[in-house]
Design a protein around this nucleic acid. Structure first.
Lengths: 127, 127
DNA sequence: CCGTATCCTTTGGGATACTG
DNA sequence: CAGTATCCCAAAGGATACGG
């Protein structure tokens, strides 16, 4: 694999044409979605169950996140007609397919976060 | 690779303990950073050169993004003492290492975005 | 050319309280 | 238990104008 050292020509003005903003299109670059997906990795989970590792998430925000994910086909919501109510959230195949790129991002973070922190320290020192 | 169909036990309450919010820690889940990285993929670029594919980005926001990336060690800024001024932004090795997970995310999008859009349509119809 | 300086709008997210 | 309903805030980002 060749390493590019020089510019290959002018940038294509339309290089991001069909590529609308990441977050609005598929809500996964936001604060909670990625974490919710990981929470659902090992099977269906209930609302309150999700609130535990998602420390401090308010019911309003959790609901919003789950609704958006449902809308985008990432999770399914199953309500059981019981008293007290029981609701389970499950990853769809589509949602599950996000686990791979998500893991790639986490792997990068595990490997390179120290470098970022170092860079940040150097930056502050030279200021 | 086994597919999990049932829950494996309670979620670990601390599963996101060392894992602070993605965006604040490494600014790459925001609106512009990922695109800037791709713009720099093929070599150094100038400020105005970046503004072209980043349609509509204001100089203020582009500056903010580039400064944050510089601070985090993703890009280097080189100013040449000329008149008129010339400045070049270049990916560091660290910044370049983000290309891989970024490409994984783009690949997912290319492959699955239609499904998301379909899900969204179905959602709207049943409302 | 490469920014800075102001001002303003949007929106994701939080706090709190209440209900079927 | 699983949400809704309100109100509120901070921060990202945009608009516009100006400067070295």
């Amino acid at each position: 694999m060749a390493v590019m050292t020089a510019t290959a020509g002018p940038l294509n003005p339309d290089m991001f044409a069909g590529c609308a903003p990441v977050t609005p299109i598929v809500r996964v670059g936001d604060k909670w979605t990625a974490k919710i997906i990981r929470c659902l990795e090992s099977g269906p989970r209930r609302f309150t169950e999700l609130q535990v590792p998602l420390r401090g998430i308010t019911p309003k925000v959790l609901t919003e996140s789950l609704r958006a994910m449902e809308r985008d086909g990432l999770v399914t919501r199953t309500a059981y007609p019981e008293v007290p109510p029981r609701v389970e959230y499950t990853l769809t195949d589509l949602g599950r397919s996000l686990l791979e790129p998500l893991e790639a991002a986490c792997a990068w973070s595990r490997r390179h976060l120290p470098e970022v922190l170092d860079a940040r320290t150097s930056w502050e020192e030279s200021a």
